[in-house]
Structure formats: C-alpha cells, structure tokens
Design a protein around this nucleic acid. Structure first.
Ligand code: ZN
Ligand code: ZN
Ligand code: ZN
Ligand code: ZN
Lengths: 137, 137
DNA sequence: TCTGAACATGAGAATCAGTATCAACTAGCG
DNA sequence: CGCTAGTTGATACTGATTCTCATGTTCAGA
C-alpha cells in the first residue's frame, strides 16, 4: 500500500460502450433497479456487459452522486438515476413506485436531535414506505 | 403448499436452553450485535448454540418486537434488545454508541408527506448518525 | 411419571449479492 | 500508428443468511 505500480486509476474516467450502456439503461428505467436487474435489462437489449462492470459502474455513479443507492430490507442494493439535491424517498411496497420528498422539517429535526445529544458531523437516512393510490384501488 | 402435514409451527413458542441463552446474552450486551457476534459471545461463555438457531431466535424476537433490527450499510444485520415503543436511533459512526430518539415531529411529517402523495399504510425508517461527544475529544 | 406429536436444533449444504483476480482489451493522447 | 494507463469480464471467492433433514426436546395430556 505504498505506491501504485500495478494500475490504480489515477483519476481519468474513460468513456466506454459499457459505461454508456449502463448509464442510459438506468436513465430509461426511471425507477429503482438492482445491479442484477440492470444486467438483465442490458442483456435483453443485446448489450453484453459483465456483471462485475455493472457493479463497478454503479459504484462509480453513486460516488459522484449521479445515482441514488437504496439498501432494501432484504439486503440487496437498488440504484436509480437521481437528482443530486438531498432528498428522501416515498416507496410503494406493492409496485415499487417512488416519489422523491424533501423535508426541511426532518432535516431540522435530525440535526437538532443529534446536537442535543452532543453528536456532530450528522447524517441521516429517512425512508417512507406505504401503498400508493394506484395499488389501493 | 396446501396444508402443513410436515411440521409448520402452529403458534406455540417453547422454552429451550438455546432461546434463553440468546435472549439473555443479547440483554447483557446492551448494544447492537450481529448474529455472528452473538454466536461468538455465547461460545465464549460456554453456551453451545448453532448459528442457525441464533438466526432463528433473533428473527423470532424481532417479529415480536423484543429486539430492534438494523441493516448496516455493509448489508449485515445487527440486533439489540429494545424498548418496544416506536422510536429511532442516533448512532455514533466512530464507537457505535447508540441513543434512542423519539420524534413526534418526524412521525407527523412522514405521515403527512405520504398522505399528500396518496399513500396509505405508511411505515418509515429513520436513522441518524454522527460522531458522539466522547469521540470528538 | 410416562407418551407422543409438535417443535426445535444443528451440522453442513445451498443461496446469493457483492468483491477480488488477472490476463486480454481499448480509449485517448501525441 | 503506437504506447500506456484505465477497463473489462470470466470466474473464483467471500461472507451473511437460509435451507435440509435426521435427531433431540418440550410439554400437554393420560
Ligand atoms: Zn403502488
Ligand atoms: Zn434529509
Ligand atoms: Zn462515539
Ligand atoms: Zn418513527
């Protein structure tokens, strides 16, 4: 772990067929998809991209804030192209439909609550789930 | 999948050495532990309980609300004996110290936000993390 | 106390998402 | 074109959690 004589990326991000494919497939999807879902979707449209590359690309997109990552209850991560502004999600447990919600209320509450306990450098996770109007019909 | 002639538990909950051991070990621990942690802890004190049983017991305790389950970022679940009243957690990212926080504010916000979008049967997850006072010193 | 059916257990196999390897491949620059 | 650093993907691997199923226990009832 002293130097990088092997091939540690130095910061250049190349454009490849695979990265483009993953990005646009994710954009077209609109909702949340797991890496596996995305891989299948790509395969269906004839784009051959290795699952490892799908994971790598998603991780990269997530680190730049281009996609949102959600850790589902079953432990699998799902991704979605997402506005970069801080916000939370309202997800339908039935059909997966997702709405973005912003909340100065929670933001303030979370911060206040944390400071009250002497915590600093506060972050938070808020997820709301329910059954959407369509699925209630 | 039509009837249960095999041995599907019908609702009776028996007391066994293993369940007692898991419950009390969890109570003694106080904080959040993974199933593996708990298994090791039991082994250390001479209690031989299969890992599968640890998982089964934890799942059972979680379903009755006797323990809290938290899905960590790395995907592993951690458990903790917990008051049954609805509340959220404020966790230190450095030492793991945990405070329980309740919030009529978030409760109301989450519900209102969900209803505004036509969602019903609303549930929510809220986790706040930060660096506690002790770790800041 | 004795019985037996329903429950529970545990060793090990199976699953499954995600990561590590590493040789072959290619984008981008000059 | 030709080189070099960044990329890819088949595949092995890891680590958590679940499944299998033969064997061991619990406890209501006799
Ligand atoms: Zn829905
Ligand atoms: Zn927020
Ligand atoms: Zn701390
Ligand atoms: Zn709440």
């Amino acid at each position: 772990m002293t130097d990088g004589h092997e091939s540690a990326p130095t910061g250049v991000r190349r454009t490849t067929r695979q990265r483009t494919a993953v990005s646009s497939a994710l954009a077209e999807a609109g909702g949340f998809l797991s890496a596996r879902d995305l891989h299948d979707r790509l395969a269906a449209q004839g784009e051959r991209v290795g699952i490892a590359t799908v994971y790598r690309t998603l991780a990269s997109l997530a680190s730049t804030g281009e996609v949102d990552v959600l850790l589902r209850d079953d432990g699998e991560s799902v991704y979605r192209r997402c506005s970069s502004a801080h916000h939370h999600h309202l997800v339908c447990r039935e059909c997966g439909r997702t709405e973005e919600v912003t909340g100065p209320t929670v933001e303030a509450w979370a911060t206040a609550e944390a400071e009250r306990h002497g915590f600093r450098d506060v972050r938070h996770t808020v997820e709301i789930t329910g059954i959407c109007a369509t699925c209630t019909l």
